[in-house]
């Protein structure tokens, strides 16, 4: 009986989120009519399209009491794509706010403002809305965890996203993700070649946890933002305040835009996620001002630069922490 009630709640949440997404679309039209097409958002993750990307983010807080957190981090985008330039670099300040409304509801918003831009698009000179999303988390029977999110995500996508996680046993967890997103018209030039129009995406995968070595393996595959298919394997070593991992990707030949690839199917790289103190807060405060709690760096060799692109639904999403309160893997030590 209780499970059915939870399901009905979930459907209601989905409807609310769809309405939110549609209203976001209306807002975008207004901005475009104001002639602000150069005002574009920069995704917070894996946004250095050909090189290193780093960011500060924070853990997801899942408390019962209502908490508003105001935080500020920085995005470092770094790319090495041009032989006559040593590097392109971009530092964005990313102040954000997260309102944990209790009972699994959460609202997040993030601004992005470039303080250093060497070689990236000039559209970064304007402050931009990096993310604005509402989410609802549900824990169902048999350790099924669901999270619905709607709004503006990273990589200039807006729409609806649903995640599912189910720990099967202490070392094995299933997970999946489905989303329908569209490109925000105020996106930056770096994302200009990505898919426009409503695009369904989805991945399914499994996580394997070795508690003795605090090591995690992840396998996943599916359809990504640019309507391409691929699969990914990841391995992470989790330390007390840091996670280090490597990943490998195998994808179809990319032929969806003018930037076609005829040879490259493999890609790979590494990720480092470092937590920044203070790691825990003992006192309860209604409003908390804090620094971003982690620094994230991704190096992706990116064989063609457009395959297997994903968006993030939380301004501080990272590979160390699950986006749901799951008592499994790294979630045991949160």
């Amino acid at each position: 009986m209780g499970e059915g009630k939870e399901m009905r709640k979930g459907i209601l949440v989905l409807i609310v989120m769809l309405a939110t997404a549609l209203s976001a679309n209306a807002g975008i039209t207004e901005l475009r009519n104001c002639g602000a097409t150069e005002l574009r958002n920069h995704g917070t993750t894996e946004s250095g399209d050909y090189g290193i990307t780093a960011e500060k983010g924070d853990s997801v807080t899942q408390g019962k009491k209502s908490v508003v957190e105001v935080f500020c981090g920085a995005d470092l985008s770094y790319s090495d794509t041009n032989i006559i330039r040593l590097y392109n670099a971009l530092i964005n300040l990313t102040p954000g706010v997260r309102w944990n409304m209790g009972k699994g509801w959460m609202t997040t918003a993030q601004l992005s403002y470039a303080v250093l831009n060497l070689g990236y698009s000039s559209s970064y000179k304007y402050p931009r809305l990096g993310m604005a999303a509402v989410s609802k988390e549900l824990s169902l029977k048999k350790d099924n965890h669901l999270k619905f999110t709607a709004g503006l995500f990273t990589r200039d996508r807006y729409g609806v996203d649903v995640r599912w996680m189910m720990p099967v046993c202490s070392w094995f967890m299933l997970q999946a993700r489905v989303g329908v997103t569209n490109m925000w018209w105020l996106s930056v030039k770096e994302h200009a070649f990505e898919t426009k129009g409503w695009t369904p995406t989805g991945t399914i995968g499994a996580n394997f946890w070795i508690d003795k070595w605090a090591t995690e393996f992840r396998l996943s595959g599916g359809r990504y933002i640019n309507e391409d298919y691929g699969m990914e394997g990841e391995a992470y070593c989790h330390f007390n305040h840091c996670s280090v991992g490597a990943f490998a990707q195998y994808h179809e030949l990319y032929r969806h835009t003018t930037l076609k690839s005829y040879t490259n199917r493999f890609s790979g790289g590494f990720r480092v996620v470092m937590m920044i103190p203070p790691y825990k807060y003992k006192k309860y405060r209604k409003v908390r001002v804090r620094p971003a709690s982690n620094f994230r760096l991704t190096y992706n060799a990116q064989s063609d630069g457009y395959s297997m692109k994903k968006y993030h639904t939380d301004p501080e999403e990272n590979e160390r922490e699950y986006q749901m309160d799951v008592k499994w893997g790294t979630g045991l030590y949160r």
């Binding site: 350790d143 189910m166 046993c169 202490s170 070392w171 094995f172 008592k327 045991l332 030590y333």
Partner: peptide, 8 residues
């Protein structure tokens, strides 16, 4: 350390 669990 907390005991890991899943439905299995």
């Amino acid at each position: 350390e907390q005991r890991p669990h899943g439905f299995w």
